[in-house]
Design a protein around this nucleic acid. Structure first.
Lengths: 151, 151
DNA sequence: AGATATTAAGACCCTATTGTCTTATAATAA
DNA sequence: TTATTATAAGACAATAGGGTCTTAATATCT
């Protein structure tokens, strides 16, 4: 199998999108996020910690604690999140893996693949959390609950 | 990190492209393919066996044996090879991993990502081995030897 | 027939990602 | 101050992809 974004990154994006649909002031429990989004609870914990270190979410320990989204995170793009979670150059390198492939020494598909890559990157850079969270809200349950199916 | 094609698949494509540059009648040693393309020898062995089972390459054991490309393989597309090595639906699924995301129940980025996917697939389906092997031949050494660098 | 050269096949190991569990630590509320 | 409820953190396990190594099988040449 092959993925554009790692599972960690997918989880991160989904968690951030979800937090963006929730009121800013009330911390959301990690456990609730995990349950609603169908993400392994403790694994989500690690991802949220990582996001907290980058000041994307804010964590509050103790009673009535939980996670809230930092205000500016609404403007984050999927690309930025991918950079943070999957690493700076998460889409670099030759499609077919030639070690020396580059603009000056291109493999047979270098040029066209480069265009594809640029489109993917532009797509990820165009998508901001605040655009997505609105669309997400009404569909959350249908999208996350694996028991649901439609004709 | 994230890749479109697994390393196995990249190796497979590179090996097939290379075999396509060689005369049909003379078997090429696995060891030579591995060396020229900078692929771990025994790992390449496994991949070639897999390709042999799908009648993409032909293997000849014993003295003066080796691998040759089956004639019809010249027309193979990168997409077809990816399907064989990485699995039928190597590009399926929601970008952000919603379990239930589909055309009738789309996530916030489903539509646009679908377009991206279709472009990638079209690109991979457009690229046939015989187109690529010609372009590859003169550049083989520069592309594969990690010692080489250009200004 | 016997020596040799090659792929075939499978056991095995390494590493990174993903996922689980347990124990701190911190904050609140009584 | 104590009980409670939450995250923090790190040890640990499971899995899959990637890679190595050894032995078997098979073909050729002398």
């Amino acid at each position: 199998m092959s993925l554009l974004l790692t599972k960690s990154c997918q989880y991160a994006i989904r968690a951030i999108m979800f937090l963006a649909t929730q009121p800013e002031n009330i911390p959301v429990l990690q456990r609730d996020i995990a349950e609603i989004l169908n993400i392994p609870n403790h694994f989500l914990g690690k991802i949220l910690q990582q996001l907290a270190k980058h000041d994307i979410v804010h964590s509050q320990r103790g009673k009535s604690g939980g996670f809230t989204l930092c205000h500016h995170a609404e403007e984050l793009t999927l690309y930025k999140i991918a950079e943070i979670v999957d690493g700076e150059k998460f889409l670099d390198g030759c499609v077919v893996g030639f070690p020396n492939c580059s603009d000056v020494n291109p493999c047979p598909v270098h040029k066209e693949w480069k265009q594809m890559k640029e489109m993917i990157i532009a797509f990820l850079q165009r998508k901001q959390i605040h655009q997505l969270s609105g669309k997400l809200e009404p569909k959350l349950e249908d999208l996350s609950n694996p028991g649901e199916h439609d004709a």
